[in-house]
Amino acid sequence: MIIREIVESDIQQMVAIYNHYVETTSVSFEETPINAATLKERIEIVTSAGLPWLVAETNGQIEGYAYAGQWNKRSAYKYTVEPSIYIAVNNIGKGIGKALYTYLLASLKSKGIKNAIGVIALPNPSSIALHESVGFKKVGEFDRIGVKFGQEVSVGYWQLALDA
Score class of each variant (00 low, 15 high):
L160I: 10
K78Y: 10
L105Q: 03
S107Q: 15
G112Q: 07
Y79F: 15
I96D: 02
A129H: 14
I87C: 04
V134A: 09
S127H: 12
N91D: 00
R144A: 13
A106G: 10
A68F: 03
V55H: 02
G112V: 03
N91H: 14
Q151C: 09
S110Y: 07
S133Q: 10
Q61H: 13
A121Y: 06
T58V: 00
V153G: 04
N72P: 00
L105E: 02
G156K: 05
L162N: 07
G97A: 08
N91M: 12
T58D: 12
Y86I: 08
G95D: 09
A161E: 10
L162V: 02
V89T: 15
P125A: 12
L100Y: 02
P123K: 08
D143H: 12
Q70M: 09
G93Q: 06
T80C: 14
S75T: 11
A116V: 02
A106P: 03
E63C: 12
K109N: 09
E152G: 00
S107Y: 01
V139I: 15
K138L: 11
V55P: 01
A129M: 10
I120Q: 01
N115Y: 09
Y103Q: 15
V153R: 14
T102R: 14
L108C: 11
A66F: 04
I145K: 13
K98I: 11
L105H: 07
P123E: 09
T102D: 14
A76R: 14
I96M: 08
Q151F: 05
N124A: 08
I62F: 05
Q151L: 13
A121H: 03
D143L: 11
V119G: 01
